Computed example of a mutant assay.
Amino acid sequence: MIEVYIDGATAGNPGISGAGVFIKGHGSAENYSIPLGNMSNHEAEYHALLHALRICIKQNYKVVSFRTDSQLVERAVEKQFAKNKAFAPLLEEALQMIETFDLFFIKWIPSSQNSVADALARKAIEAQK
């Protein structure tokens, strides 16, 4: 199983944002630091999810376990519902991609267990300054 750690970060809220994606499995690790431009922290968390899903699909990973420190994103995916209507299109896009996997799991983890993805997201912010 592939483990995927995701995080979105902003400098200000809204502000310059970045996504971090850390993928490990099959004896290797992949790091992605993705500049996102200006958006809110919650938007950055959703975009981190979307970028990670696209990467997994491109890599043809079929069994994935996502880890996020965003309870908002984890709950939205689990319930297949975004309370904030502004996030509904982002969630819908994610759910469509999730359907392509043989197995998909998402789990909330504390920020202390997501330090690699957080550092990658912050690196993406710094690249935009």
Rank of each mutant, 00 (worst) to 15 (best):
D69W: 02
A119K: 14
K123E: 15
K58P: 00
S40W: 06
F87L: 13
G8F: 05
V116S: 02
N13G: 08
E78W: 09
G20K: 00
F101H: 12
Q128F: 15
K62S: 15
F105G: 02
E126A: 09
I98T: 10
A94K: 05
N31A: 06
I55H: 04
L50C: 08
F87E: 04
L36T: 02
S112W: 06
L95V: 06
S65C: 12
V21Y: 03
H42P: 00
I109Y: 07
G20S: 08
V4I: 15
A76R: 00
W108N: 05
Y46F: 15
S17A: 15
G27V: 07
R122H: 11
E78F: 10
G27E: 11
F81Q: 05
A76G: 01
Q128T: 13
L90M: 14
S28P: 00
N114C: 12
Q128K: 14
L72C: 12
G18R: 04
S65Y: 05
A86S: 14
F87K: 01
Y32V: 04
G18P: 06
G18E: 04
S70R: 01
G12W: 07
I106W: 00
K129T: 14
S40P: 01
D118Y: 03
L103S: 15
A48N: 03
H47V: 03
A48D: 04
A124G: 14
K24Q: 13
T68S: 15
G20V: 01
V63M: 06
E78M: 13
L95E: 02
K79F: 11
L36P: 02
V21T: 10
K129C: 12
S40K: 01
R67G: 02
V63L: 07
I34S: 02
S40M: 06
S17M: 11
I98F: 11
V77D: 05
V4Q: 03
L95K: 01
Q59R: 14
A44C: 09
A19F: 08
A76S: 13
Q59I: 01
G25Q: 04
I109F: 09
G8S: 12
F66H: 00
A127I: 08
